[in-house]
Amino acid sequence: MKLDVIFRVAAKIFIPFMLVFALYVQFHGDFGPGGGFQAGVVAAAMVIFYAIIFGLDAAQRIFPQRLVELMVPAGVAIFAGVGVVSLFLGSEYLDYSRLLHDPVHGQHIGILLVEIGVLVTVAGTMVAIFYSFIGRGR
């Protein structure tokens, strides 16, 4: 797909900032607005933006279809895995208090891990859906 040079340069400038913003939203979600759902959607929007400007093939070289489809179940596995780990450490399922020596820190780290799981699933699902819609049109 040949597009105007302005689009390409603007995309190249914007995309790193979009990724940084997604990570900021992810890891600052404890203190300000944000969290796994929003960060996942912003990260997926970055991939979709890249695919719109540079074409589907270029996007699939960087984020291959297999990786994206792997991300969909991997996030759920991370989320459920945290629950199972807390089960083995002697507390209830998805109760993060025993993840670290201190219950409060355990809760905090548990929230971060779970949010990463949510991020992976949401981003993977959105990109996979987008790929399948666009791939259908060709």
Partner: peptide, 10 residues
């Protein structure tokens, strides 16, 4: 509602 929105788009 936060979760409902994302489920809604899915």
């Amino acid at each position: 509602i936060l979760t409902a929105i994302v489920v809604g788009v899915a």
